[in-house]
Design a protein around this nucleic acid. Structure first.
Lengths: 252, 252
DNA sequence: TCCTGCCCAATTGTCCAACAATCCAACGAT
DNA sequence: ATCGTTGGATTGTTGGACAATTGGGCAGGA
């Protein structure tokens, strides 16, 4: 007969797992404040340093938030803090632009399609503002990659499909910065980009789902074409840029 | 005039950030062993307890691995440890089956398509084994959801598109367990499921990309139809199951 | 009334010096 | 060759201490 590998867990991992359980099962609601560290240590019957090590894991995962001098409080981990990590993991795996494009060309048009169906007046106003800002930036020859990322993230949010939003964000954080490297080669890139944004915006404004998806698809193909025209290797690993780090999680 | 909020970082966060930088910039390669905790504390000029708190964050993120009594060593964070977290975040946001389906129906057929193009003989053998195992389980009225998840994950891996693989995994971890709730309503579900698997396998074996995508698409539509036939509400939040926790990260 | 400065209690951040538990490799005994 | 044992290296955990930060209360002055 055989024995299954039994996992001995350090105390600090038990701490994080226990608290996590409480949160997942609803005994600890978001916004609740935890006992102080000395209290926790007393309740668990372990040392305060051990408690602190356990708390670090939950803190990073977004289950707990803290500020120096104030009590810990519970919060739900948003996908906001997950996307940058996923992007970084992909970059470390040295994924190619082709791999990114194959997925982006699926997700982005679908986001546009659902956005056209679900958009409210407020949504359209926000999109309008984004496009106008980007137009100005392009006119002034300012960097617009970050604005491009925001536009696509905005469309995804408007789609009201949080799975889609989560799925495309790591891709977007790597995909659009990859375009940055070809702007020097193609001076018209910014112009073409913003024209595409406006086409998509107008389609969404008319709630024309097919048209929105179509234009988003065109934009993706345009991106790919630009990449090839610039003579870049689509099978080369994409670079990790600092754009991806920017996404900070609102406290919610 | 105004001042921007300046962020004072605790020492333990500086520790994790510093080591992370070293890894990202390649000064620390995967497999390298870190200095011992006392050494690190001495080099940073801080206390060992503080070092340990910083290490916890990297440890959880997958940058560092450790075992009691042995030195820390560097490893790249695989997306393996990211997917369960993403799934849990989605579940906590109470996403609906419809949202999941809308994304799955995009990604899964594309995974099948690329798998058909890229599959090697070994890949096909692995798929064959998976299908056979599932067939036996269904014949014996054993649970097959976990096998189903594995099949789809396997197809995605064979696609050789790591972006696709990462994108679909959180969806899969929530989507397929959601089917579990309808098995009692639809006794034929397992049978239909495994027949679909075999169709997909045969298409991949022939490297027929269109056919593989087509059958995968059919399977998705079949899933959705089953969900509706069972009288379940597609807009109700999907439940969090323990299947998602199962994915453990191999040391790579 | 409102602002200011001050003190105080609570809480987290960091430090120090140990000891226990675990792992590994080497050595030796049967 | 297999099995105890030993010792060194490293992590896991402990206790107690102090500094830094926060928030609130409270008195004094404009």
């Amino acid at each position: 007969m055989t024995f299954t590998k039994l996992d001995i867990l350090p105390a600090y991992k038990l701490v994080s797992r226990t608290i996590e359980q409480h949160i997942l099962e609803g005994r600890l609601q978001p916004g609740d404040r935890l006992p102080s560290e000395p209290d926790l240590a007393a309740q668990f019957g372990i040392n305060r340093a051990t408690v602190r090590e356990g708390i670090r894991q939950l803190e990073q995962e977004g289950f707990l938030q803290r500020a120096a001098g104030r009590r810990l409080f519970v919060s739900l981990p948003g996908y906001n803090d997950l996307a940058p990590r996923a992007s970084r993991a992909l970059a470390l795996q040295q994924v190619s632009f082709r791999e990114l494009w194959d997925v982006a060309v699926l997700l982005e048009p679908q986001a546009a399609r659902q956005a056209a169906q679900a958009a409210t007046d407020d949504d359209i106003a926000a999109l309008e503002e984004s496009v106008v800002t980007t137009e100005k930036a392009v006119d002034n020859h300012e960097p617009f990659i970050k604005l491009d990322i925001e536009f696509h993230a905005l469309v995804a949010r408007i789609s009201r499909n949080r799975v889609l939003e989560l799925s495309r964000e790591p891709v977007g954080l790597l995909f659009f910065p990859a375009m940055e490297s070809l702007v020097p080669h193609l001076p018209q890139a910014g112009r073409r980009n913003v024209i595409g944004h406006r086409k998509i915006l107008e389609a969404i404004r008319r709630h024309d789902a097919d048209e929105a998806a179509l234009w988003m698809n065109k934009q993706m193909i345009d991106f790919r074409r630009g990449y090839e025209l610039a003579g870049l290797d689509m099978d080369a690993p994409v670079a990790w840029t600092e754009h991806a780090r920017s996404g900070e999680a609102p406290a919610q």
